[in-house]
Simulated assay, not measured.
Amino acid sequence: MLVLVVDSSTPAVTAALAEVTADGVTLRAQRCTVDARAHGELLAPHVEAVLAEAGVRPAGLGAIVAGLGPGPFTGLRVGLVTAATMGQALSVPTYGVCSLDAIGHPAAAGEPVLAASDARRREVYWAVYDAAGERIAGPDVDVPAVVAGRARDLGVTGMVGDGAHRYADVLGLPLRDEPRYPSALALATLAAERIRAAAPGERLTPLYLRRPDAVAATARKSVLP
Rank of each mutant, 00 (worst) to 15 (best):
V81N: 05
L154R: 15
M86R: 11
P144D: 12
A137T: 08
Y129K: 03
Y125T: 08
G110H: 07
I103H: 01
I136W: 03
G87H: 08
L154T: 02
G138Q: 04
D140Q: 14
R135T: 06
I103C: 09
L154N: 03
Y95Q: 03
L114N: 06
V97R: 04
A151E: 08
E123M: 13
L114C: 09
A137D: 14
A127S: 11
G110Y: 05
T157G: 07
I103A: 05
W126C: 10
A151N: 05
A145D: 15
D130Y: 11
A145H: 10
E111A: 15
R120Q: 12
A108H: 07
A108W: 09
V141S: 06
D140A: 15
C98L: 08
A131N: 02
Y125N: 01
V113S: 07
G104L: 07
A131F: 03
G138P: 02
T157P: 00
W126M: 02
V146Y: 09
P93F: 08
D153W: 11
A108P: 08
T157D: 01
I103R: 12
V128P: 00
V143E: 13
S117D: 06
G149S: 06
V156T: 14
I136T: 15
V92D: 01
A119N: 05
T85F: 09
P139S: 10
A89D: 05
E111H: 14
L154I: 05
A151W: 09
A145E: 15
I136F: 10
V146Q: 15
A102K: 13
G149C: 12
A119Y: 13
V143R: 14
T82G: 06
I136Y: 04
A84T: 12
P112Q: 12
T94F: 01
A119G: 07
T85H: 02
M86P: 02
P139F: 04
A102T: 12
R150P: 01
A119E: 05
D142G: 02
P93E: 09
G149A: 14
A132H: 12
R122Q: 13
E123Y: 04
D118E: 14
R150W: 02
R122M: 04
Y95M: 04
A102L: 11
A116Q: 08
R122K: 12
P106C: 10
D118L: 11
L90K: 13
P144E: 11
D153Y: 09
A145F: 00
A151Y: 03
G104S: 05
P144L: 12
G104N: 06
E123R: 14
Y129S: 06
